[in-house]
């Protein structure tokens, strides 16, 4: 496991723990003006798990992505997408 630090790394660690197919998890980070966009790509099978009932898992991921962003003074937006 990489010892990388930052929003992208945090989302990757969390998503890999949640996913049934951790090897299909891919996270990208890009800067759009003052907002940092994190895109989380997971296997179509894992989408439901990553979003969770009432979107609670997605909300938890967004909370922790923001927490990680707080460390670096970044405003974070997290999108969960299907990888193909």
């Amino acid at each position: 496991m990489s010892s990388e630090t930052g929003v992208r790394a945090v989302v990757e660690v969390l998503a890999k723990a949640l996913a049934d197919r951790p090897d299909d998890v891919r996270v990208t980070e890009s800067q759009h003006k003052q907002v940092t966009l994190i895109e989380l790509f997971v296997s179509p099978q894992d989408i439901a798990k990553l979003i969770g009932r009432q979107g609670r898992t997605a909300a938890a991921l967004r909370t922790l992505a923001s927490t990680a962003g707080e460390r670096e003074g970044k405003q974070v937006t997290l999108e969960i997408r299907e990888s193909r």
């Binding site: 949640l18 969770g52 609670r56 938890a60 909370t63 922790l64």
Partner: peptide, 22 residues
């Protein structure tokens, strides 16, 4: 301390992820 900011919201989020993963 980072995790207990905002009334412990990050901690609650982490708890939820641990619950669903483990």
């Amino acid at each position: 301390e980072l995790l207990v900011r905002h009334r412990g919201e990050p901690l609650k989020a982490l708890q939820h992820i641990v619950d669903s993963s483990y």
